[in-house]
């Protein structure tokens, strides 16, 4: 932690993190559509979806527990965990999958050669491959967000924590001559979440909501035993 502070006078580097409170998540999927809209995620259509080729950077996993009538359904929003020790990174032969200084698992699309090693190595199935070129029936293409690249056939893609929104937030702060404030930057999923189950912020700022919430006694990481050190902390759902 100490070495990340940098020399005095330099702004402290960011470490982007997310907290997902499962006690608030209602599985409404506002986040899923927000992600599609923000990130130009292509439509797959029924045929490709049936082949398992639908792309969702964020999905709501649903687990059934118990037997009728004492059955429960639990939800877990799963997206790229932006692991500090990411299994997807060392296997990429062309360094398309790499770690940014701010803690993001980035995917450089124009380096990607589509070997899919990273996808195979991701324990969270957070990476998805483009098996065909995206297509929008006109005039649907007019909705495309010009801030985000449209990915072509043969490219691996994944959640970026909305890196374009992070950049915009930082540029805005720079223009206004101030540091980035907690809550300035929200990925599309976090922005839309009605119950505020998703919270995003700078883990290096000890006063940020995300840093405080991550210390909650309810916190856990997905597949913690694998030692991937995810940037996403889940807070357990409470049951009485």
């Amino acid at each position: 932690m100490e070495d990340k502070q940098g020399p005095p006078g330099e702004p402290r580097p960011h470490r982007w993190q997310m907290v997902i409170d499962l006690d608030r998540c209602t599985g409404c999927e506002a986040c899923v559509v927000a992600c599609h809209a923000e990130n130009n995620i292509r439509l797959s259509g029924p045929r490709e979806a049936a082949e398992g080729r639908a792309i969702n950077w964020i999905r709501i996993e649903r687990y059934w527990e118990g037997e009728y009538p004492d059955v429960k359904a639990r939800f877990m929003p799963v997206l790229c965990q932006h692991c500090a020790d990411a299994p997807c990174e060392p296997v990429c032969p062309v360094y398309a999958s790499y770690h940014t200084p701010e803690g993001l698992n980035a995917q450089v699309y124009n380096r990607c050669i589509g070997v899919r090693y990273c996808g195979n190595n991701c324990p969270y199935t957070a990476r998805q491959f483009n098996w065909f070129d995206p297509q929008w029936d006109p005039p649907l293409e007019q909705q495309l967000n010009p801030d985000v690249t449209v990915r072509q056939n043969g490219i691996m893609e994944k959640c970026t924590f909305c890196v374009q929104r992070i950049r915009q937030g930082k540029e805005q702060a720079e223009r206004e001559g101030r540091p980035v404030r907690d809550g300035d930057i929200t990925p599309a999923c976090v922005q839309s979440c009605p119950t505020t189950a998703l919270v995003f912020g700078d883990g290096n700022d000890p006063n940020s909501r995300v840093a405080i919430m991550a210390k909650s006694g309810r916190g856990f990481h997905l597949l913690e035993s694998l030692g991937t050190h995810p940037a996403i902390t889940y807070l357990k759902r409470l049951d009485e």
């Binding site: 599985g27 409404c28 999927e29 899923v32 559509v33 599609h36 809209a37 439509l43 797959s44 259509g45 979806a49 639908a54 969702n56 999905r59 709501i60 649903r62 939800f75 649907l140």
Partner: peptide
């Protein structure tokens, strides 16, 4: 299409 492809939770 976004809603058609939105998985039923």
């Amino acid at each position: 299409p976004w809603l058609q492809e939105l998985p039923d939770t």
